[in-house]
Design a binder for these strands. Structure first.
Length: 310
RNA sequence: AGGUCUGAUGUUGGGCGA
C-alpha cells in the first residue's frame, strides 16, 4: 500500500485531482500520508470544502495533516478560521508558525507576523526568510536587510528573496551587490536579474545572463521572451518562442502580449488560438490586446463570452 | 534501548489586472 500511496502523491503533486481522488477511493488501506496528500491536493486547488471533508474523515491526524488544513484556510483567504484552527491544534511546530507568519504577511499584518515570530520557540532558516519577506513586502527594506544579515544560516531562498526585494524597490546597486556576493549559482536569482536588466533597458545584460544559464527551464525561456518584448524586440521574442523545447500557458500569454505590444494583432490572435487551453489571464491578455489595437468589437465579444471573469 | 537515511506540510524567479 506504500506503492499506491506514492502513486497517489504523484497525482496529488501534479494537480491531477480527479485521478488522485479516484485512486484514493480504490485504495484498500489508506494511511495518514495518503489522507494528507489528498487534503493537500484539495487545498492547493482552492476547494476548501473538500479539504475540510478530507480532514474530518481522516481516521488519524498528525502535525502535518493539521498544518495542511491550516494552509487550506490561509490559501483561500480564511484567516479567522485559520486562527481558530491554530488555537485548537494539539501541537505547533516550526512549519505551523511559519504558515501563520505567511498568512499574516499576505494580509499585510506585519505586527502580527512579527508577534508570531517572537512567540515561536525555535526558528529555522525558512521562518527567518519568511519574516524577512514580511518586512520587504511592506517596504521596510532596511529591516529586511537586517533580517538577512542576522539570520543564523542563509539558504538560496533567502538570497533570492532579498535580491528580489531590492529589485522591486529599484535599488539596483544593492541588488547587484547581493547577486555578485552569492556563494552559489542559482537559476532563480539569475532569472530575477535577467528580468530586472530588461526592465531597465539593458537587454544585452539579460542576454548574457540567459546565455550563461547552466540549465534553461521553462520559466527562464519565458522570461527571455518577455525581456525582448519589454524592449520592443518582438522578432527576437518569436525566435526564442520557436526555439524552446516546450511551452506552457504563460509562455503563450507572453507571446500574445509581445505581439499586441507591437500592434501585430493577427499574430497575437494566431498564438492565442493555438494555445492548448486558455485560462482567465490568457483571455484577459487577449481582450487587452484587441483593445490596444483598436478592435473594440472583438474585445467586447471575447469579454462577453468569458465564463470566469475576475 | 539509541542513532542515520528512505513516501505527505512552510519562505524566492516568467503572463493580464490589482
Amino acid at each position: 500500500e506504500v506503492a499506491q500511496s506514492c502513486l497517489m502523491q504523484a497525482y496529488a503533486l501534479s494537480g491531477h485531482i480527479r485521478k488522485a481522488s479516484k485512486l484514493f477511493g480504490e485504495m484498500p488501506e489508506k494511511d495518514v500520508v495518503s489522507w494528507t496528500a489528498l487534503l493537500k491536493t484539495y487545498a492547493e486547488a482552492g476547494i476548501l470544502s473538500r479539504a475540510r471533508e478530507a480532514f474530518d474523515s481522516m481516521p488519524k491526524r498528525n502535525i502535518i495533516s493539521w498544518n495542511c488544513m491550516l494552509q487550506a484556510y490561509t490559501n483561500t483567504g480564511h484567516l479567522c478560521e485559520a486562527e481558530t484552527l491554530f488555537y485548537s491544534m494539539p501541537a505547533w511546530d516550526v512549519v505551523t508558525w511559519t504558515c501563520l507568519i505567511v498568512a499574516y504577511t499576505q494580509n499585510r499584518n506585519l505586527s502580527k507576523a512579527l508577534d508570531a515570530f517572537q512567540r515561536m520557540p525555535l526558528r529555522d532558516t525558512v521562518c527567518w526568510t519568511a519574516v524577512m519577506q514580511a518586512y520587504a513586502q511592506q517596504g521596510y527594506l532596511r529591516e529586511a536587510s537586517a533580517m538577512f544579515e542576522n539570520m543564523p544560516v542563509r539558504g538560496s531562498v533567502s538570497w533570492n528573496g532579498i535580491l528580489v526585494a531590492y529589485i522591486e524597490n529599484e535599488e539596483f546597486d544593492s541588488a547587484n551587490k547581493i547577486f555578485t556576493k552569492m556563494p552559489f549559482y542559482d537559476i532563480v536569482s539569475s532569472v530575477s536579474m535577467l528580468t530586472a536588466y530588461a526592465q531597465c533597458g539593458h537587454i544585452l545584460e539579460s542576454e548574457k545572463l540567459f546565455a550563461g544559464l547552466i540549465f534553461k527551464d521553462l520559466i527562464s525561456w519565458t522570461a527571455m521572451i518577455s525581456a525582448y518584448s519589454t524592449n520592443g524586440r518582438v522578432e527576437e521574442s518569436k525566435s526564442v518562442f520557436t526555439k524552446m523545447p516546450c511551452w506552457d500557458i504563460v509562455t503563450y500569454s507572453v507571446m500574445v502580449q509581445a505581439y499586441a505590444h507591437k500592434r501585430h494583432i493577427l499574430e497575437a490572435e494566431q498564438i492565442f488560438q493555438t494555445m492548448p487551453f486558455q485560462d482567465v489571464i490568457a483571455r484577459n491578455t487577449m481582450v487587452a490586446a484587441y483593445a490596444h489595437c483598436g478592435h473594440m468589437i472583438k474585445a467586447r465579444g471575447l469579454f462577453d463570452g468569458m465564463e470566469d471573469k475576475n
